[in-house]
Every structure is written in C-alpha cells, then in structure tokens.
Computed example of a mutant assay.
Amino acid sequence: MKYYLLSVVQPSEGERPAPEALAEINRNLQTFHQELREAGAWVFAGGLHGPETATVLRPDGGDVLITDGPYAEGKEYLGGICLIKAPDLDAALRWGRRAAWATTLPIEVRPFMGEAV
C-alpha cells in the first residue's frame, strides 16, 4: 500500500456556491469520507482557510523570513486535502474521481514516496 494525497484545487476567482449548493457538497464529502473509511483507505482529510490566512517562511541566508499571505499569486490555491491509502495509482485515481464528484472541483492525485506504514 502507498499513501496518496488528494488535493482540492480551489479557484481563487469567481463566486462561492450558494449555501444550498455548499450544503450538498458537504453531504457528498461526508458520504465520500465514509466510503473511504469503510474501504480501509481513510487516513485524514480537511479543508483549509483561504490563502490570505497563510504565513510563508522562507530561508534567507542564515535567517528565515516570515511573510503574510501566499508565496505567489495564482488563479488557484490548495483548498483542502485528503490523505488515503491505496494499493496503486489506479485505485487512488478512482478515489480521486469520487473526490472530484463530491467537491465539484479539480482534484490532484499525488503519491507519497515510500510505502504506507
């Protein structure tokens, strides 16, 4: 088994979905997370606050500079993560498809180095 990161790609532009749509997305996510648990693939998941809440630490010579906000402006940002266990990339991609359906957003699937413990 390997660990895979399912990253929710949140657009930085455009309107937020209506409260009814967000409620449906939340229900879909709860169902998705329950499916992961039942399959033994669940490790961790959570949404993130917007990039304006970020703090970036950057090495600078012998010091570390701390700045507010994202490192770079972009059209997308990391909106949430889900860490799963899967036997291979194909299985992780199947979970990624389910995540895209649940969130209605693009999902990046990326393997961790090494095996799951």
Rank of each mutant, 00 (worst) to 15 (best):
Y4D: 13
L6T: 14
L6Q: 12
L6Y: 12
L6C: 13
L6H: 11
V9W: 03
P11V: 10
S12G: 02
E13P: 01
E15T: 13
R16M: 15
R16D: 13
A18Y: 10
P19F: 01
E20W: 07
A21K: 11
L22N: 05
A23F: 12
E24I: 14
N26W: 13
N26R: 11
R27D: 03
L29E: 06
T31K: 12
F32P: 00
F32D: 09
F32G: 04
R37Y: 04
R37H: 05
R37E: 07
E38L: 07
E38Y: 02
G40T: 15
A41L: 06
W42F: 15
W42N: 04
F44S: 11
A45R: 08
A45F: 07
G46T: 01
L48A: 08
L48G: 04
H49C: 03
H49V: 10
G50R: 10
G50L: 04
P51I: 03
P51A: 01
T53G: 10
V56M: 11
R58I: 06
P59A: 13
P59K: 09
D60I: 07
G62Y: 02
D63V: 13
V64E: 06
T67I: 03
T67R: 02
T67A: 04
D68G: 07
P70A: 13
P70Q: 11
Y71K: 00
A72I: 09
A72N: 09
E73R: 09
K75L: 08
K75A: 14
K75T: 11
K75G: 07
E76M: 01
G79Y: 05
G80D: 08
G80E: 08
G80W: 05
I81Q: 13
C82D: 08
K85G: 07
P87N: 13
P87E: 11
P87S: 11
D88E: 10
L89S: 04
D90N: 14
A91H: 04
A92Q: 05
L93C: 14
R94S: 15
R94L: 14
W95H: 06
G96V: 03
R98N: 08
R98I: 00
R98M: 13
A100H: 10
W101S: 10
P106V: 02
P106G: 03
E108P: 01
E108M: 00
E108G: 01
